[in-house]
Design a binder for these strands. Structure first.
Length: 417
RNA sequence: GCGGGUGUAGCUCAGUUGGUUAGAGCGCCAGUUUGUGGCACUGGAGGUCGCCGGUUCGAAACCGGUCACUCGCCCCA
């Protein structure tokens, strides 16, 4: 630590930014509540196995990306890099498999040890939903619709494109993976270095390689859609029909994949090009294999997570500060009475600022530059007459109001446009 | 983890081929105005030039390292 800085990849959320985050979170909470998703929370850390067991062979994630540490008791713990595993763990450890289906909404910080970029922090924030129990494609449709509704209510849906793909069930996936590996082996020498490594570790990821040479090779590669069995095709058909019927627009993206073994059927992402390379703003899919990989019963699930920072950037400065009211004591003699008046107005349901430092001139100067719109001024003369001066700081108009009428007059003034 | 760019006041930035006390605008504080803001004028505070080392008579400037930010790659549960 040098020169008191926040830890790399973390940031303070000062009120302006916090207001944007809260707008995103509140919008998500309201939009998903309309579908019956209920808010819950899991701990920000778990036993490391909760996150490592479902990952299988997959590479860098565990060793390179997790924030892991041993506590004083020697337990190996990890700060949650995402919330789905925690929610499924909560379902298993709480015996909630007796109460299926479950529809959960969550919001909170996540942690990944990565190189920070725009829209990519080491501590970042997500909102998300998980729909546990049904394996029906209509559940997928509902989850995706909830995501689209959330983005629409936030006012950013028009900047996003919904990419949709089907990974098929376990059998379909395995068959395709084998065919893809066989094909790519014949072109291995022409693949990029990164993709040569992926071929051994996570071959499906080669499908979304950014390397131009890789993309050429993929032109003639076997297509995932050709390896879907009848059930998998039916699942995708049901989903897309439901989305079309509901007016949710989407594009088929055969290269959209998920590397981990517990994913199946639906994979989707809402993507934007408005905020840089980290353009996925909300993404999710079906994860029927996850519960068993965590040691629980077979429980199907589908859900999504969305990045609060990225959405706040997309939504921009849509947060407007509410006008405020402040009380100013004109003399030290009236300080106590002004303080009491502030409490009286707060009792009446009005938000009141009570600036204390400096002369009335100083205080009004500060107030004029802040979001304070109404100034209530109390001095000796007003005290004697049981009145106050009510000054509108935007227009400069001022009038004397009887204290008994003050709450009503202020309330009316705040409601006026 | 890999590569490019950038670090000078709270913010946005000047700073000549290396030269003596490092500047501007905005913001902040105070006064002109001891019961009333915005405007104006006057004054003031605020910097180890990210940090460490090197070259040099002399470094904010040149070189090396390091840290941070930023853009991209890897990864993206």
């Amino acid at each position: 630590m040098s020169k008191l800085q926040p830890v790399r990849g973390t940031a303070d959320l000062l009120p302006d930014v916090m207001a944007q985050h809260l707008l995103v979170i509140d919008t998500a909470r309201l939009a998903t509540a309309r579908y019956g998703f209920q808010e819950m929370a899991t701990p920000v850390f778990e036993f490391s196995e909760v996150f490592t067991r479902p990952l299988g062979e997959s590479s860098d994630i565990v060793t390179k990306e997790n924030y892991s540490f041993a506590d004083r008791g020697g337990e190996q713990l990890t700060l949650r890099p995402e919330n789905t595993a925690g929610v499924v763990r909560a379902m298993i450890s709480g015996g909630l498999t007796q109460s299926l289906p479950l529809k959960y909404f969550y919001a909170g910080p996540m942690f990944r040890y990565e190189r920070p970029q725009k829209g990519r922090m080491r501590q970042f924030h997500q909102v998300g939903i998980e729909y546990l129990g049904p394996n029906d494609a209509l559940a997928d449709a509902e989850v995706i619709s909830a995501g689209a509704r959330f983005l629409a209510q936030l006012g950013v849906l028009q900047h996003c494109v919904l990419h949709l793909n089907s990974l098929g069930d376990l059998d379909s996936r395995a068959a395709y993976r084998a065919a893809l590996v066989e094909f790519l082996k014949t072109h291995e020498s022409a693949l990029s270095d990164d993709s040569k490594r992926r071929l051994a570790v996570n071959p499906l990821r080669i499908l979304d390689s950014k390397d131009a040479g890789d993309r050429d090779i993929l032109q003639t590669a076997p297509k995932l859609a050709d390896y879907l069995n009848a059930e998998s095709k039916a699942h995708f058909q049901t989903l897309t029909s439901a989305l079309d019927a509901a007016g949710v627009t989407w594009v088929y993206d055969p290269l959209l994949v998920r590397g981990l073994d517990y994913y199946c059927h639906t994979a989707f992402e809402f993507v934007t090009d408005a905020i840089g390379t980290q353009g996925t703003v909300l993404g999710g899919g079906r994860y029927d294999g996850l519960s068993e990989m965590l040691g629980g019963p077979a429980v199907a699930g589908v859900g999504w997570a969305a990045g609060v920072e990225r959405l706040a950037m997309l939504a921009g400065d849509t947060v407007v500060a509410a006008p405020k009211v402040a009380i100013f004591s004109a003399d030290t003699d009236t300080d106590t009475a002004a303080f009491r008046l502030a409490e009286t107005l707060r009792d009446a349901g009005i938000d009141i600022d009570f600036p204390t430092a400096g002369t009335i001139g100083k205080k009004l100067k500060k107030a004029a530059r802040s979001d304070i719109k109404l100034a209530i001024i109390l001095g000796g003369d007003e005290m004697a007459r049981k009145t106050v001066q009510l000054r509108d700081l935007t227009t400069g108009t001022q009038s004397e109001i009887a204290m008994t009428e003050l709450a009503d007059v202020v309330t009316a003034a705040l409601l006026a446009p």
